[in-house]
Design a protein around this nucleic acid. Structure first.
Lengths: 340, 340
DNA sequence: GTGAAAGCGCTAACAG
DNA sequence: CTGTTAGCGCTTTCAC
C-alpha cells in the first residue's frame, strides 16, 4: 500500500490494468459506441479499482466540446440571483450541460475580466445578467460564436437573446396601481447604485406613469451597504421625518420594503389606509411578515429556467431559428399594503 | 466585414497577424520570460484587434496546471453559503486562483457526482462543506492528490484539513446560557433533514449540556420546505399549542427563529421574561427585526477566508506543514431574547 | 530575446 | 466490436 506516486491516473493506466485498448476504455467510460458486455465490465472494474477520474481537459481539447455553461451574475448575496441559479440548474440537470458561476459585484470591469476568464474555457453557452455591457464585453460575446442569453431585463437590444421582464413597464404598472388607489404623495426609496440599471428603469417607468396621472415623486431616499432590513427601517423613518405627508412609499426591493413595513407597524400607522407600501421582487420572505407587502414578482426562477432551455436547445441545434426577446409579464401582488 | 468563419481564434492566428512566432506570442500573453518591448506591443495589438481569447483548455493540458478551486456546497438558497463564498472570493481575488461552485442539495449522491465532475477538471484544490462524506467521495478526494479543505464543521476526522466551528460545542454553550438564565421548559424547533449533520450535532450538544443541568427538551417541532420565516411562525404556534408551559425555544436557524419572534411579539408575549428565544447563524437580517434574536455566529465569512488562504498557501508551497483542524470559537449574541 | 520540436491525455476518423 | 493513427491548441524544453 506504499502508493507514493502522485501522478494522476490516465486512460493508459486503466487500459493496462484491464488489458483493453485506450480507445475502447474511452468508449466504455463515455458510453459511446458498441462495446461487448464482457469488456465493458472489465474496464469498469479496473477503472473503479484504480479510482480513475477522466481528465476533461484533455477530453475537451480533443473533442472540441465543453459541456459548461457560463453564468455571470452581479452578486450571490442578493437572493434574486441564487433563485435564478436554481431555475437554471433545474433545467440543466436533465442535460449534459453544467453551470459555472462568475460574480461581477456590479462592476463592468470585473464583468469583463470574469467573462474573459470564462470564455477562455470555451463554454457551450453564456447566460449573463443584464442587457447593459461594456463594448469590450459585447465584442467578446459576439466573437465567441456561442449562444448568449441576457437575463432579467428586456429593455434594450440583446446581443443574441434576452429573457426577462421590462423593468420600465414594471415601474409603470406599479404607478398605475397607486394612482388607481388614489395615493397622492409618493416617496421612493432605493439603493445608491448608479449601475443598477434595472432599478433605474423601474424608477423611470414609475415617474413617467405617475406624471401622466399628474403626480410626482416628492421625496427620495437612498442607501448603500448594511442590512437591507435595518436600512429599510432607517430610511423610512428619515424620509417621513422630512416629509410627514407622504402617503405612499415605493421601495426598490422587498427587503428594504419589509424593513419599512415593520417600522411603520411599530409606529402604529394605518396601512394601507393612511400610507401604502410596495416593494419589488416577490421574495419568499414576505410570506412570514405580519402583513404581506405589496410587490411584483421578478419571475426569477422562470427566467432561469427559460434561459437554460434556450441554451440547451441551441446547443443541440445550432442552426434553428430563435426569438430574440422573451418578455415575461409579472403581475402585481397587492398583499396587505396597497389599497385596490 | 463578411467574417463568416466560426472557428475560434488560435495562437497561430495572432502569430500570423503579428509576424511573431507562436511561442513568443504565448510568452507575451502570459507575461512570462523576457520579450522586447517592440514585439510585445506588436503582439498585444494584434491580439486585441483580432479579439483573441486564449484557450485555457489547451493551456492547462500543456502546462498541467489549472488555476481553479472547486467549492462544493449544499445549497445557494441558504444565505450561509453565499456568505462563505464571499469570504472565499475575497481571498482568491488576490491570487491566480478562481473558485468554481458546485451544489449538492444536501444529497450525498449528488455530492459524489458533482465532486467527480469537478475533479475531472483537475482543479488545484477543493473546498467542500461538511466533514461527513460517502466512502466514494472520500476516496476520490484522497486520490486526487490536491489540497482539500472541509469547512463549517470540525466535529470529525478531516480528510486533509478542516476549518469551522464545533457545532456540538455551539449547542452546549447555548444550553449553558439557557441554564444560567434559569429557563426550565425547553422546546426545540428545526428542519426535517436527517442529513443536516451540523444541526444534529448542535442538538446533541444542546441536550447533553441541558441534561447535565438536570433539564431536558420537552417538545420538538420540525419542518421542511416553504418560507422559513412563515414556517417559524407556524411551528411556534403549533409547539406552544401542544405545550403552553414552554419558556424557551431553541431554533436550529435564525430564519425560523425570526418567524417565531415576530409571532410571539404579535401575541404580546413577554420576551425574554416569560419566554426566551435563540437561533443560530448570526444572519444580517436579524439587525432589522423589532427585537434582536439571540444567536450564535457561525463565522461564515471567516471560514471562507481561512479555507481559501489554506488552499492558496498549499498551492504555492505543497510541501509545507499544515494544521489539520482549525476550530473557530463563536460567541453567543444575547440580543433581546435571552436573559443574561 | 526568439524559435523549433515534442508532447500534455484524450477522442475523431478510419481500418479491420 | 476493437484497435491504430493523428491531431486538438497550447507550453515545456532546449537550441540559437
Amino acid at each position: 500500500m506504499a502508493d507514493d506516486d502522485p501522478r494522476p491516473l490516465t486512460l493508459r493506466d486503466v487500459s493496462e490494468a484491464s488489458g483493453v485498448s485506450e480507445m475502447t476504455v474511452s468508449r466504455v467510460l463515455r458510453n459511446r459506441g458498441d462495446v461487448s458486455e464482457t469488456t465493458r465490465a472489465k474496464v469498469l472494474e479496473a477503472a473503479k479499482a484504480l479510482g480513475y477520474v477522466p481528465n476533461k481537459i484533455a477530453g475537451a481539447l480533443a473533442s472540441q466540446r465543453v459541456n459548461l455553461v457560463a453564468v455571470i451574475i452581479p452578486s450571490m448575496r442578493n437572493m434574486v440571483f441564487p433563485e435564478v441559479m436554481a431555475g437554471i440548474s433545474s433545467v440543466l440537470e436533465d442535460t449534459e450541460l453544467q453551470p459555472v458561476v462568475g460574480v461581477t459585484d456590479y462592476e463592468p470591469e470585473k464583468e469583463e475580466r470574469v467573462l474573459y476568464e470564462m470564455l477562455s474555457w470555451r463554454p457551450s453557452g453564456v447566460i449573463i445578467a443584464g442587457i447593459e455591457h461594456s463594448e469590450a464585453s459585447k465584442a467578446m460575446l459576439k466573437a465567441s460564436g456561442i449562444p448568449v442569453v441576457e437575463i432579467m431585463d428586456t429593455d434594450g437590444t440583446p446581443i443574441d437573446t434576452a429573457v426577462g421582464i421590462s423593468h420600465r413597464r414594471a415601474g409603470r404598472e406599479m404607478a398605475k396601481a397607486i394612482l388607481r388607489a388614489g395615493y397622492q404623495k409618493i416617496g421612493f426609496l432605493g439603493t445608491k447604485m448608479p449601475l443598477d440599471y434595472r432599478a433605474r428603469k423601474r424608477f423611470e417607468g414609475f415617474t413617467e406613469a405617475l406624471a401622466k396621472g399628474g403626480i410626482e415623486v416628492i421625496e427620495q431616499e437612498f442607501y448603500s451597504g448594511g442590512s437591507a432590513l435595518a436600512k429599510g427601517r432607517e430610511m423610512t423613518q428619515t424620509i417621513l421625518a422630512r416629509e410627514p405627508e407622504l402617503d405612499f412609499l415605493y421601495y426598490s426591493n422587498d427587503m428594504i420594503g419589509a424593513g419599512g413595513l415593520l417600522y411603520l407597524l411599530e409606529q402604529g400607522r394605518n396601512i394601507p389606509g393612511d400610507i401604502g407600501l410596495a416593494g419589488f421582487n416577490g421574495v419568499e420572505l414576505l410570506q412570514g411578515l405580519p402583513r404581506k407587502l405589496a410587490t411584483m414578482d421578478a419571475c426569477r426562477s422562470e427566467i432561469g429556467r427559460k434561459a437554460a432551455e434556450i441554451i440547451a436547445a441551441r446547443v443541440d441545434n445550432p442552426d434553428a431559428e430563435f426569438e430574440k426577446i422573451i418578455e415575461l409579464s409579472p403581475k402585481i401582488a397587492y398583499g396587505d399594503t396597497l389599497r385596490r
